[in-house]
Design a protein around this nucleic acid. Structure first.
Lengths: 193, 193
DNA sequence: TCCTTCATTCAACGGATGTAGAACGGTTCA
DNA sequence: TGAACCGTTCTACATCCGTTGAATGAAGGA
């Protein structure tokens, strides 16, 4: 079909389609993270991607599906066995989330309070973390995991979205160091029940 | 002017006006807390208060001002001198916020990610808490106070708004107990810098 | 070259929202 | 009683939104 080893010509129609879709997804992610689901309009996404609003609908079908695609993210696994290992892995995830802004996650976070799907997405990431409760001893392992989850959400939210001055300006490692004893106190069952 | 010791007749026009305004404010608080600023419409508030939408405008001027009035709340002061006292007072505030749903605060919390004014309101409550940093020793007192603030926000948010199952169902006192060492580790400067 | 395909744009609709102003009807007071 | 007041409702406007379907024009294949 094609004599050369180039199955499709560069900059073909298919390629341009992919490029445009990526441009739309990127713009959508940025806007959803900055404004949340409701305040982000399809028209604004289209404008940011330098495209007509109808094209966004044509590719993604609805604002709902666009949001789902723009916020899709793989949650890092927590596989530690001991409470100390679990704590370190959670702190590692936190550290990474403090250093770089995880756009897709931030988009879900900012929308979780007003958009059910976003809340479900955040809930899933949280549930993934709760599964480590097998490694958190005590009858209240699940509750401990949930509290840690809430803490991580609160800190990331305070730094990137609410932008509490002290949190936004601080050195990520310093925050992690401050939180180490807190997280450790929750992953280790040091309470007699 | 009035021969009896009843300066204004009960159920007078003034009284009815006050009643209606309170009914509107109550409905607004509940809706803002449940749906956030954007998804709460003036028409919905009016319907919940069994009143016409125009009346809400007549009394509060704009949705903006209605929100400001509905979310006005006095933040409890933290006056402790020692790190331990500060920790206990913060835990007490948390406990109270876990037991009963602080409607006005929840309204501000749910809207903080999409509405600038709400974010400012939350920021103020946070700043009030940061002032305790005078009682938190160490060069990083401010940062420590901010981290505690973020933790409290995260936990209250997780319980009342995101409704993470484990947090929503748990006994408030149990959550407070779990967080005590975490908060203590942050109010006490136990790190050598 | 001609026809098909398809990425993209254009124009429009139906609905919802914040807000403004006129109108109504009971209350208050001289 | 009669007139002013005011709590309340009704109607309407301008805007913005998600979404749709037709139109356009360039690229790809026969």
């Amino acid at each position: 079909m094609n004599p050369m080893n180039e199955p499709t010509p560069r900059s073909s129609r298919a390629q341009q389609r992919i490029d445009t879709q990526e441009r739309i997804l990127s713009a959508a992610g940025r806007l959803f993270a900055a404004l949340g689901y409701d305040r982000t309009t399809i028209r604004a996404v289209a404008a940011a991607a330098e495209v007509d609003a109808g094209l966004v609908m044509h590719y993604f079908g609805s604002k709902e599906r666009l949001f789902a695609e723009a916020t899709r993210t793989e949650t890092p696994l927590v596989t530690g066995e001991t409470p100390e290992e679990v704590a370190e892995q959670l702190l590692g995830i936190l550290r990474q989330s403090l250093i770089e802004e995880p756009i897709a996650s931030l988009a879900a976070l900012r929308s979780m309070l007003t958009h059910p799907d976003a809340a479900a997405e955040v809930g899933n990431a949280h549930a993934e973390r709760v599964k480590v409760s097998k490694a958190i001893p005590g009858v209240d392992g699940n509750l401990r995991a949930a509290v840690v989850s809430a803490i991580l959400i609160g800190v990331v939210l305070g730094r990137h979205l609410v932008k509490l001055d002290e949190l936004a300006d601080a050195d990520p490692d310093e925050i992690v160091e401050l939180l180490r004893p807190a997280v450790l106190s929750l992953t280790k069952a040091d309470r007699t029940e």
